[in-house]
């Protein structure tokens, strides 16, 4: 049991940071982290012994987040899974603050798959391989999503919102 504390506790600050970046709400973020820790402790004995604990924890947290978003959108109206990919964070309204080019508002308006790639790599300092493990996708897909995320963020910084790209010439 001491092993769990020794390996998981150092990751809690980063799990809180990622949760906040996904949700942009302190209370909701800590709820997500709490659920993540509960799940992790319960599943501890079943994880791969030689696996990367950080990637394992982030994977749990992200999957819980996705389930939450899915439940929320199902509660609204019926949407297909492709539509869900395009649904930005519901709290994000990039039109509302076009004046302030807040990078957090920018990432909130990205599709989740791009948002998570950018956060895991740029903020959490994960390697491309580690991010691929968290997201359950090949490294090549990580690279192409990262490329699209950065392109949209450049557009966002340039125009104040990232829906419409303007090529910098």
């Amino acid at each position: 049991m001491d092993e769990i504390a020794r390996l998981i506790e150092p990751q809690i600050p980063a799990l809180r940071r990622y949760a906040f970046a996904l949700l942009r709400d302190r209370e909701a973020a800590d709820d997500l982290v709490q659920d993540t820790l509960e799940r992790a402790v319960a599943a501890w004995s079943g994880r791969h012994r030689d696996g990367d604990v950080r990637a394992w924890l982030f994977k749990i947290e992200r999957n819980l987040f996705l389930r939450m978003v899915q439940r929320r959108s199902r509660a609204g109206r019926e949407v297909g899974s492709e539509a869900l990919e395009q649904v930005p964070d519901p709290c994000a309204d990039p039109e509302a603050d076009t004046g302030v080019k807040d990078v957090l508002a920018g990432i909130a308006a990205l599709p989740e798959e791009q948002r998570s790639v950018l956060l895991l790599i740029a903020v959490e300092d994960m390697s491309y391989a580690e991010a691929a493990e968290v997201l359950g996708i090949p490294v090549g897909t990580v690279m192409s999503r990262l490329s699209r995320a950065r392109e949209r963020m450049r557009g966002f910084i340039e125009t104040g919102r990232n829906g419409f790209l303007r090529r910098v010439k």
């Binding site: 970046a21 807040d102 990432i107 740029a122 903020v123």
Partner: peptide, 9 residues
């Protein structure tokens, strides 16, 4: 963008 994200978080 990378620097600002890291700073804000």
């Amino acid at each position: 963008v990378r620097r600002r994200l890291r700073e804000q978080l």
